[in-house]
Every structure is written in C-alpha cells, then in structure tokens.
Simulated scan of single mutants.
Amino acid sequence: MTPLDKPVRREVQIGDQAYTLTIDPDGLKLVPKGKRNGLTLKWTELVNGDAALATALQASLASG
C-alpha cells in the first residue's frame, strides 16, 4: 500500500454544489469550493466513534 504522507485533494459534486475534499495524515476536510471553512474530521474521531459528536459541535460553533 501507498502511505498517506501528503494531502490529496479532489473535487466532489454533492447535489448542485461543488466541494473540495482534502485527505491528509491527520484526517479529512470537506469545504465548499471557493471557501476556506468547512467540515474537518480527524481520523481518531472517526475510529473512536466520536465523528457524530465532532460534526455536531462544529455545526453549532459555525452557526453561532
């Protein structure tokens, strides 16, 4: 297998919105294309089952 030692970026179309997905050694980040802020998820959160909690927290902070 190839180790993930640098960020990999891909464009993802979700509905009619384009997003940039970045996968790196720390986790992944999904950002609306042309923006800087988006959803960040660390691998440890995903593996430990804390992904839903982390996502809810980020959403509540972003709306405030």
Rank of each mutant, 00 (worst) to 15 (best):
M1L: 08
M1R: 12
M1V: 08
T2F: 04
T2P: 15
T2G: 08
T2M: 12
L4K: 03
L4A: 06
D5P: 02
D5C: 11
D5Y: 09
K6Q: 14
P7R: 00
V8I: 11
V8Y: 09
R9N: 11
R10P: 01
E11V: 10
E11Q: 10
V12S: 06
V12D: 02
V12C: 03
V12Q: 03
Q13F: 05
Q13L: 14
Q13H: 10
Q13E: 12
Q13I: 11
I14K: 10
I14E: 13
I14S: 07
I14M: 08
I14P: 02
G15C: 03
D16W: 03
D16A: 07
Q17F: 01
A18V: 07
A18S: 08
A18T: 08
Y19C: 11
T20C: 09
T20D: 10
L21R: 06
L21A: 07
L21F: 05
L21T: 00
T22D: 05
T22E: 15
T22F: 06
I23C: 05
I23Q: 04
I23G: 04
D24Y: 01
D24A: 06
D24H: 03
D24T: 00
P25D: 04
P25G: 10
D26M: 03
L28F: 02
L28T: 01
L28M: 08
K29Q: 13
L30V: 04
V31R: 04
V31Y: 01
K33I: 01
K33W: 04
K33Y: 00
G34E: 02
K35D: 03
R36S: 09
R36F: 04
R36K: 12
R36A: 10
N37S: 12
N37M: 11
G38Q: 04
G38E: 01
G38S: 07
L39Y: 07
L39Q: 12
L39C: 06
L39T: 05
L39E: 04
L39G: 00
L39H: 09
T40E: 09
T40K: 06
T40I: 02
L41Y: 05
L41M: 13
L41G: 13
K42N: 02
K42E: 05
K42F: 02
T44A: 13
T44I: 13
E45Q: 15
E45W: 08
E45G: 03
E45F: 10
L46P: 02
L46A: 10
L46E: 05
L46S: 01
V47C: 00
V47E: 13
V47N: 05
N48R: 10
N48S: 07
G49M: 11
D50T: 05
D50K: 09
D50M: 09
A51P: 11
A52D: 15
A52Q: 12
A52C: 03
L53A: 13
L53Q: 15
A54V: 01
A54E: 14
T55F: 09
L57H: 14
L57Y: 13
L57K: 15
Q58V: 14
Q58R: 11
Q58M: 14
Q58L: 10
Q58D: 09
A59I: 14
A59T: 10
S60R: 12
S60L: 13
L61E: 14
A62K: 15
A62P: 03
A62G: 07
S63D: 13
S63P: 04
S63T: 15
G64S: 15
G64L: 14
G64F: 14
